[in-house]
């Protein structure tokens, strides 16, 4: 009986400290020190919020860079991967249809297609692509926007980020940064 009473009191006290005070204090500090990150790293363009720098978005136009395929249709409120196993026939249907949708330049060797271009990400919201993926999209974007391939090539090079401290992670490009640069170039 003493144990039960003490357990109830401990639960009550800790719910307040760990469940309310702790997250609220972190929220206060977060808002004070890092307001943009605390709010979800939202991106403004043309005077309104268009998304989050960290969250991929569906891009259906040929004139912009496409993020990785998403098994959840880029649902920012419903993340997830395909969860297809390596011998599941559905995996090959999915990758095959992603391959068809990739709109590769004619004559591209299949072995040169980077896997991140045709295989779905884990979250369905991966905002980054490999530089090889970005470069394979250049001919399509050049054709559609009239921008020179040379300029696009340089854009990808400029926006490429290396591993952290040259060690952790891999070279990649954030699709948001590419697309915002494209829109600014074309006058939005």
């Amino acid at each position: 009986m003493t144990n039960l009473l003490r357990s109830l009191r401990l639960t009550l006290v800790l719910v307040v400290i760990l469940g309310l005070v702790y997250p609220l204090v972190v929220t206060g500090f977060g808002r004070l020190l890092f307001p943009s990150q605390a709010n979800g790293s939202l991106v403004r363009f043309g005077g309104r919020i268009v998304g989050s720098r960290l969250i991929a978005q569906a891009v259906n136009v040929p004139g912009l860079f496409h993020p990785r395929p998403s098994a959840v249709k880029y649902a920012g409120n419903g993340s997830g991967g395909s969860n297809l196993g390596p011998t599941n026939p559905a995996l090959f249907r999915e990758v095959g249809s992603n391959l068809a949708a990739a709109d590769l330049p004619p004559g591209t060797k299949l072995s040169a297609v980077p896997p991140d271009m045709v295989e779905s990400s884990a979250s369905g919201l991966d905002p980054d692509i490999t530089p090889a993926n970005a470069r394979l999209q250049i001919p399509r974007i050049a054709r559609s926007t009239g921008l020179s391939r040379r300029w696009l090539w340089r854009l990808v090079l400029r926006e490429e980020t290396g591993p952290f401290l040259g060690l952790w992670g891999q070279p990649m490009v954030n699709v948001w940064r590419l697309n915002l640069a494209l829109l600014r170039k074309s006058g939005g």
């Binding site: 929220t27 605390a38 363009f45 136009v61 912009l64 697309n179």
Partner: peptide, 28 residues
Amino acid sequence: IVFVGLGLPQTLDGAVTVHALGGGAQTI
């Protein structure tokens, strides 16, 4: 606190609905 600095959200507001770049809306 370090995590917030590195990009993890910390807010009591719920989802935000944005006007996506390619048209349409995205709820995050």
